[in-house]
């Protein structure tokens, strides 16, 4: 995939200190189109559909919010939602998102995921799971293992 000006701008916005202190790329030095392309291949190999994963994450975030900041059990998951004041803009400049995180723990297998409202958007709209080493990187294997999809 080509690094069009759209992706060049997005990659600039993902650097540490632009939108968040730690950025979206972690230690990953690849162009984001390569990160996206590689993750799309892995998701396909694992039989994961971006839309289906995003819908499940949205569902778990909304259920987690019912705990009002405390952990809450929903199905096989222990969910805890953390909310902070304000919003974060998407590095692709296509919206702003509440600073809401949900920690998803699968109580059956102990696997966990940390997901933000913004990271669900990036997954759903751009197939961008963030760079390796990013605090909010969504590893396809972790998505599959935790969500049991």
């Amino acid at each position: 995939m080509k690094m069009s000006p759209f992706y060049v701008k997005a990659q600039d916005n993902m650097q540490p200190g632009i939108i968040t202190s730690s950025g979206f790329l972690g230690d990953d030095t690849r162009p984001i189109v390569d990160i996206i392309e590689h993750d799309e291949e892995i998701m396909q190999q694992l039989g994961l559909d971006f839309e289906e994963v995003a819908n499940r994450l949205h569902e778990l975030m909304e259920e987690g919010r019912k705990g009002l900041g405390e952990p809450i059990t929903y199905q096989q998951f222990l969910l805890q939602v953390y909310e902070a004041r304000g919003f974060l803009p998407s590095p692709f400049e296509d919206g702003i998102f509440r600073k809401v995180n949900v920690n998803i723990e699968n109580k059956k297998n102990g696997k966990t995921l940390l997901v933000s409202e913004l990271s669900i958007h990036l997954l759903q709209q751009h197939h961008f799971l963030q760079g390796r080493g990013s605090p909010y990187r969504l590893e396809p294997e972790d998505l599959k293992g935790t969500l049991e999809l």
């Binding site: 004041r85 304000g86 919003f87 974060l88």
Partner: peptide, 10 residues
Amino acid sequence: ACGGKGSCGA
């Protein structure tokens, strides 16, 4: 609340 990052609106 965000230390001047433009993300809290405070």
